[in-house]
Amino acid sequence: MKILAKRPKGLTDARLTYCPGCLHGVAHRIIGEAMEELDIVEKTIGIAPVGCSVFAYNFFACDMIQVPHGRAPAVATGMRRAQPDCVVFTYQGDGDLAAIGTAETVHAANRNENISIFFINNAIYGMTGGQMAPTTLPNMRATTAPYGRDVADMGYPMRVCEMLATLETPYYIERVSLLSPKDILKAKKAVKKALKYNKEKKGFCLVEMVSTCPTNWGLDPLASIDWAKKNMLPVFPVGVFKDEAKRQEASK
């Protein structure tokens, strides 16, 4: 009897609190799989943000902590120094990371903290009911941009990977998509690579995952995936923006 697929050991058996079809659940699962496959569930500390994934401390089977909005990379930095042999990851949404937590993100990256940041970009504030996020698309509606995001007034969607890739020190930065099985499998590889780099104490890894928010986009799960493919991917192109291991191999 061979198990082809089942809930990974990196997740607890708690039922996820996300809306039907929300891809947070997929992000959770591939992180849980990666932890199981790297055999680090008992060596990892996960950090839950404020946002839809605030309850993540109930969903991952490793040690967990819930921290103030935007401050996960700073908390991870403190843990990095206190528990050098652990793998530390933060799990953050676009409001948590790219709005209130921008400084913490940029400086953790610049210090090449040996942590993984899993950044779920669905271009909206989900938990609080659909407000505009730094990654909200131009003219995209949100409860705080009822006439659509006015780029002249509130700026263009923030491309975190590209921004962080201008820094010298971060080790690995990739943007992936969760918008199809093929994309999810690729995303899983990126997540596993990030956690592996941490296990090998290589430095700062960030995997941005383009995701959906059916409830606050006002679309059903399938339609929101189509919308994201059509509208999100052009603004947030997937790809590797930094991979120190690859760069060093290439320069050999």
Binding site: R71, A74, A76, M79, A82, V106
Partner: peptide, 21 residues
Amino acid sequence: LQAESEVAAINMVLGAAACGV
């Protein structure tokens, strides 16, 4: 560690304290 702000610094303390140091 000289943090990027006092906000970051207290959260680093939160992280380290959570690890029992």
